[in-house]
Amino acid sequence: MEAPVPRADDFVGINWGSTNFRAYLIGADGVAIDEYSRPSGVAKLDRAGMEDLMRAVAAHWPGLQMAYAAGMIGSNVGWQDVPYVLAPAGLAEIARGMVGTVIGGVPVRLVPGMACRRAYDGGPDILRGEEIELFGFTQLHRGWDGFVALPGTHTKWVRFSGGKVVDFFTSMSGEMYDRLTSAGLLASIVEGEAQVGDAFLEGVRLGSARQLGLGTLLFGARARVIRGALPRTESASFLRGLLIGAEIADALAIHPGLAAAQIPLIGNGPLCQLYAAALESMQVGSWYVDSRAACVAGFTALHRLEMA
């Protein structure tokens, strides 16, 4: 199917991370008209490659006038390092922190990430790209106060109040799972994909109990398979459960109020299903939010602020 030609008031929102590139052509009414994606994150491209990709976007949508780009494209490994906005902050602070540039002949507004000092321990944390989904979520659910989780490679647990991100923390459990199951000793016992079931829930229970550290529990997965206590086909589920369970235990320690919350989960469906099952097993409610819808709503809100 031939790509639509942008109208004068259409704009493009780009989520440009380390591994993937996804662009949305969005109308002034906030409806996504078309999508263009490539497995071309900034970690795979030099500056010439970034320019070539933006030229491809302009060729796909000829006449493109306005583009916003969030994610690692605005980091020190991307096109240009855009300073973080310090939380507490809302969408207006994000808009003021944008930096204009040109990539491959296309004018682009680079969206800043966010930084915070956690109230829990005074520790620093950072995010890039998730701010679009977060503020998109608050456009879809006006007046939201409380917590939001974004399961992924680096899962974010975010606290909102008064329309602003107050603080957040990040867990690398997704990256840990990817690395442990792609190389090293544990990779030799993993077969299949993680799914909700007894092995996953047992992993959640052990990971969240905090009786043993993750280093011991993770090696224990290998011992279980070798000794016949865990089928190889369920090892991925058990490992995911250990990591997600430990992460949720951290979240509950940092934010005890989570125990009584209904937590929106923004991300891809299968991973959010694992988090939802883990939370339910720990008597915490949750519900799924489509990341694409949140992303489009976030870029739309940012564009309207910019045009106001």
Rank of each mutant, 00 (worst) to 15 (best):
M1D: 02
V5Q: 03
V5W: 02
P6W: 04
F11E: 09
V12L: 06
V12D: 03
G13N: 00
N15E: 05
A23Y: 00
Y24P: 03
L25Q: 08
A28F: 01
D34E: 12
S40M: 07
M50E: 03
E51G: 11
D52G: 14
R55D: 08
V57G: 01
A58T: 08
W61I: 02
G63F: 05
M66W: 09
M66H: 07
M72S: 00
M72W: 02
M72N: 00
D81E: 13
P88T: 12
A89D: 01
L91C: 10
A92I: 14
E93W: 02
M98Y: 02
G104S: 06
G104K: 04
R109C: 09
V111H: 01
V111R: 00
P112N: 09
A115L: 03
A115S: 12
A119F: 07
G122S: 13
G123W: 06
P124H: 04
I126P: 06
E131Y: 05
F135L: 08
F137C: 01
Q139I: 00
Q139D: 02
H141L: 10
A149N: 03
P151L: 10
T153L: 11
K156S: 08
V158Q: 03
F160S: 06
F160R: 04
K164G: 08
V166A: 09
F168G: 04
F168R: 09
S173Y: 10
Y177P: 13
D178R: 14
T181G: 13
S182Q: 03
A183W: 06
G184L: 05
A187C: 06
S188M: 11
S188H: 15
V190S: 07
Q195W: 01
Q195M: 06
G197C: 11
G197K: 12
D198N: 13
L201V: 10
E202F: 09
V204E: 13
R205T: 15
L206T: 08
T216E: 09
L217K: 02
L217I: 04
L218T: 09
F219G: 12
G220C: 08
R227V: 01
G228Y: 11
P231F: 09
E234R: 15
A236K: 06
L242V: 15
L242M: 14
L243I: 14
A260E: 14
I263L: 15
G269V: 14
L271G: 15
C272M: 14
Y275M: 12
A278T: 05
A278S: 14
S281C: 14
M282T: 04
Q283G: 11
V284P: 10
S286R: 11
R292T: 12
A293M: 15
A293Q: 15
H303D: 12
A308L: 11
